[in-house]
Design a protein around this nucleic acid. Structure first.
Ligand SMILES: [Mn+2]
Ligand SMILES: [Mn+2]
Ligand SMILES: [Mn+2]
Ligand SMILES: [Mn+2]
Lengths: 232, 232
DNA sequence: ATCCAAAGTTAGGCAAGACGAATTCAGGAG
DNA sequence: CTCCTGAATTCGTCTTGCCTAACTTTGGAT
């Protein structure tokens, strides 16, 4: 029963796998309560599902110690992530969605689309490598880029950096970021950083550069790459 | 509890409502076993669901007598039908699907898409009135054209007719029809009709007219409109 | 008027997923 | 080493949707 049939998993299972993939990407096993939070279910529901996922061979489950995806589970999770991100990209570029509304739509569609549909969308888009929030899109082979971005809070004052990726789960945050001109690809200079988890001041480049203040909490989740220093 | 909350119905309920709508369109109430056949479930499953649908106010249920949709149920069913047909149209014209594969994909997606997505697809298509199989697409207001088509088996020999609509549930049948050049819009002349449910011979118009023989069973489900007779 | 077959319903179960309440474990503080 | 606390699990229950087996009902044939 642990073998991988192709017959499509339930919506619940797919969402659990995706949540576990994301949580374990922090480096540590995914904890029950973190999964519960992420999926908005109660911890006992998670315990129950973990047992089923483990019996089905998707996770390595050591009670009280958290869970890690097996190779099969990781494959399955990455497949959903690919679907999600292709869908987001398609909805934005072909159907006029905004970057703050694509996530919810993709969250449901990812469980209903066929592989064929996803590949047709990918082709129509020219096989994009990043979704609208800058997240890398796994390949059909199940490979995913592991970007080595640095948080805005870790960029020294005076450096130029480019915004590469932002979390896509909170529409309000995305709308706010848009008003600051902070979308992936935006370039900026760090003007100042206040101590004790204080705000970061940046100057966003563009035809009309704008100075903005970004709170620490927000800045922590803005993933950037530093632009090469001019070498004397 | 019979009031119409917006919170989206389950996939099962939506498919039941759609099946009932189609069956009752024959003029008589939808029978339990017909619903069971249509959804590939056992009759007791239908009885159970009918009770729930009736309590929820979607159908008028008189045990042993079949069911009819209430106004609320009809509204809900037509909404799913709209989704299904817009999806089919979109998949064909924007994503290169063939007319024999769109149905299955739409059958799953119809339960996952938002109203907004459907309306964006409809807009991108220029608000089509018919789906790829010639079926009329309900409006957002819940109106649907009641076409007065006639079956190919009822068209007199010698008459010219246009194919308007074909059933979309059997991919093989659709592929076969395509090889005959029989898609909605095709025009043809009825050459002969054999008695005792025998085949119908037609000449399909086009740059290179082709004579075809269509079995009675198939001919019965090809919905056509007769082209005006030349008068005097 | 009776009987029968087909259609439909009821009864009883099962699996998936969720919940709250009660219990158990693990790891840190003392 | 013991105790406490927060995290996790177990337990019992619910809902949805499906099934088979057993039953009722219906309506036509005799
Ligand atoms: Mn999802
Ligand atoms: Mn995203
Ligand atoms: Mn469906
Ligand atoms: Mn169709």
């Amino acid at each position: 029963m642990a073998s991988a049939m192709r017959s499509s998993l339930s919506r619940s299972i797919e969402d659990y796998l995706k949540a576990i993939l994301e949580l374990q990407s922090e480096g540590t096993p995914a904890q029950t309560s973190a999964i519960a939070d992420s999926l908005a279910v109660a911890p006992p529901s998670v315990s129950g599902m973990l047992k089923r996922l483990s019996e089905a061979g998707f996770i390595e489950y050591e009670p009280y110690k958290g869970v890690v995806l097996t190779a099969v589970g990781r494959r399955a999770a990455l497949k959903i992530v690919r679907r999600h991100r292709i869908l987001e990209s398609y909805l934005m570029s072909k159907l006029g969605y905004d970057w703050d509304t694509v996530h919810d739509e993709a969250e449901r569609l990812e469980h209903a689309v066929s592989d064929q549909l996803i590949e047709r969308m990918a082709m129509a888009l020219g096989h994009p490598r990043y979704d609208p929030h800058g997240a890398p899109i796994p390949t059909t082979a199940g490979d995913i880029e592991r970007p080595d971005h640095v948080s805005l809070t870790d960029i020294p004052v005076g450096r130029i950096a480019e915004l590469r990726m932002v979390g896509d789960k909170d529409p309000e945050r995305l709308r706010y970021l848009a008003t600051l001109g902070l979308k992936p690809g935006a370039t900026f200079e760090v003007l100042s950083r206040q101590p004790f988890h204080g705000p970061v001041a940046i100057r966003v480049a563009g035809p009309m550069p704008r100075d903005q203040i970004v709170g620490y909490e927000l800045a922590e989740t803005l993933w950037c790459s530093m632009v090469e220093e001019e070498v004397g």
